[in-house]
Nucleic acid binder design. Structure first.
Lengths: 212, 212
DNA sequence: CGTAGCTTGTGAACGATTTCACAAGCCACG
DNA sequence: CGTGGCTTGTGAAATCGTTCACAAGCTACG
């Protein structure tokens, strides 16, 4: 199978989200055009994205909603039981721990860590916040597939290093730092400040764009 | 000025983040190479990104840290007083409202809304959660620049519509929905489920990649 | 004041992604 | 069972973003 662009994977995930909507509304089939309109893209794009993985549609008819959902779940690995640890139990970390959407999508929080002694021992969604004193050993025991990091920038690289050493191969990083990880480890960065700055950039430059 | 790629703007924001680090460590100048290493990109990329907006460096020397920070802040619109409303005071909305990083970057939460009557009237960071009954009127009064939406998928499009009608031109959307907005309105989507699914995709497909 | 050594700024080449356009194929209906 | 209408799957073209490579230009130092 040829390499798939990350942007394509991101869209596959969105298609799955929209298919859930179509299924809820009782649609049995859906065309690439309908999926494209939901997702703000084009029908050719939808077909290209799907065609990398096989031929799931029927010409003249479109895609069978439940079948395409099954295929996308398979491709994305949705529905397996994914074990997640959260490192950093601050505002964002705590909110994520309590976010029920995770559970609904098969993500299972198996551990929460914090370096702040005042938080250690408190319960979040029935899970006791652990000290980072034995971080690597504890992570090894918990065997998570995914690590979510909501730690300060300066703690980000050391934390990532320990997660990787303990066997984690996928990291969702909320810290404003570029993590260096070995091959075979995937990192996704979510940076609130940058998201907002892209918006303020557009606000500042919008009036200029009009004059072109 | 020619159109700037969104990926470039995103990187400018990261450069600013890393410059803050260099400044804190007392660096007076920084080369495109050093910035590139921090940001996981290449020096040519850094120079290209900056060159769209002017010549900020000195050949043979690099960039003056405080000067480049000033320029980037100017370009991105950082440091102005940006007024923000948060719509949806659930787990994520509440965490964002309490997130102090916003305040530090000049983002000022001026209003919080929720449709759930049990939450209305409660205080978050000293701001009373408002009913959505008079949403559009209230937003007009608050005059926010940015709307952050943490509402359920089905409420997303109507909420966006009302925000736009009330004059908001930039939306940070956490709902899993593709918002239709008129020209001149910028939307950025943050979708936790999709971020995680990109990670699970990589976990599922990593072993395959090895065999190529 | 001249030269050596760096680092920027930027066209041009390259690579990746998106869009186009159309043949292939399926369904429905007469 | 044949035809019309619709939608997929996919090479080819176009667009967009990144990397290369080097001339231009500044600083430092003798």
């Amino acid at each position: 199978m040829k390499r798939i662009a990350e942007s394509s994977v991101r869209r596959l995930s969105l298609y799955l989200r929209y298919l859930e909507g179509f299924a809820a509304r009782g649609h049995l089939t859906v065309s690439s055009e309908e999926l494209a309109t939901s997702g703000g893209t084009t029908s050719a794009q939808v077909r290209k994205d799907l065609s990398s993985f096989g031929s799931f549609g029927t010409r003249g008819l479109g895609y069978t909603v439940p079948e395409l959902m099954t295929q996308l779940r398979e491709i994305l690995g949705v529905g397996r039981d994914w074990r997640v640890v959260i490192v950093g139990a601050g505002k964002i970390g705590a909110a994520l721990a309590q976010y029920h959407g995770f559970r609904q999508h098969g993500f299972h929080v198996v551990g929460i860590f914090d370096a702040n002694k005042t938080r250690v021992g408190q319960l979040l969604e029935g899970i006791k916040i652990r000290d980072t004193a034995h971080f690597e050993r504890d992570v090894r025991t918990l065997k998570p597939h995914i690590g979510i990091m909501t730690v300060p920038a300066e703690a980000a690289q050391p934390t990532a290093h320990k997660l990787v050493k303990a066997g984690v191969r996928a990291i969702l990083n909320f810290a404003p730092a570029n993590l260096q990880v070995p091959d075979g480890v995937t990192v996704r960065n979510v940076n609130m400040a940058s998201e907002l700055e892209v918006l303020t950039y557009s606000l500042v430059h919008q009036e200029h764009e009009k004059h072109e």
